[in-house]
């Protein structure tokens, strides 16, 4: 029952978020540089879209629930996966592609499998090293991509 109640209001929450989001971005459009003597300047299109989005947001707030479909639960573990991915993006210029990728893959294997035994970590590390070497060779050597070397480069 609580699931149904929660679902009956989430479109309204989306609507409210949209209204706040539109207001903030609309305010930001006043900082755009514009050209003189043009029919439609730089702000025209973003403001039009924001106005449409705000109207839709308002309708969502008023109607509250659009369909009887049950929303699938948002898994915090999945969001954590993305968070770890973002952490990888932030750290890679510092630690470099090869060491960070090996660590990232080894830990990810264990987290998804939910097995932190020594055997699983060793097996994971072997696969991580192999995968990193293959990806590095493919991009760094075959495609000549300058992959981040980290602070020790």
């Amino acid at each position: 029952m609580s699931q149904v109640n929660k679902n009956s209001t989430y479109d309204r929450t989306v609507g409210l978020c949209l209204l706040v989001f539109c207001a903030l971005l609309y305010w930001n459009t006043f900082s755009f540089k514009t050209r003189l003597f043009v029919e439609l300047n730089t702000t025209f299109w973003p403001r039009t879209i924001l106005a449409i989005l705000a109207i839709i947001g308002l309708i969502l707030v008023i109607r509250g629930k659009l369909t009887d479909e049950v929303r699938e639960p948002i898994s915090w573990k999945s969001l954590l996966t993305a968070g770890v991915g973002l952490f990888y993006v932030v750290l890679i210029p510092v630690l470099g592609f090869i060491p960070l990728t090996i660590v990232f893959l080894t830990l990810s294997f264990s987290v998804i499998k939910q097995d932190f035994s020594r055997q699983a970590l060793v097996k994971g590390m072997i696969i991580a090293v192999l995968a990193t070497v293959v990806i590095y060779t493919l991009f760094g050597q075959v495609m000549n991509v300058q992959l981040p070397g980290g602070f020790w480069e």
Binding site: F104, L105, K113, T132, I135, F139, V145
Partner: peptide, 13 residues
């Protein structure tokens, strides 16, 4: 558990 993280690295690289 093995191919998903590897796919992420391939996509990111």
């Amino acid at each position: 558990e093995y191919f998903l993280p590897i796919l992420f690295i391939v996509a990111a690289t």
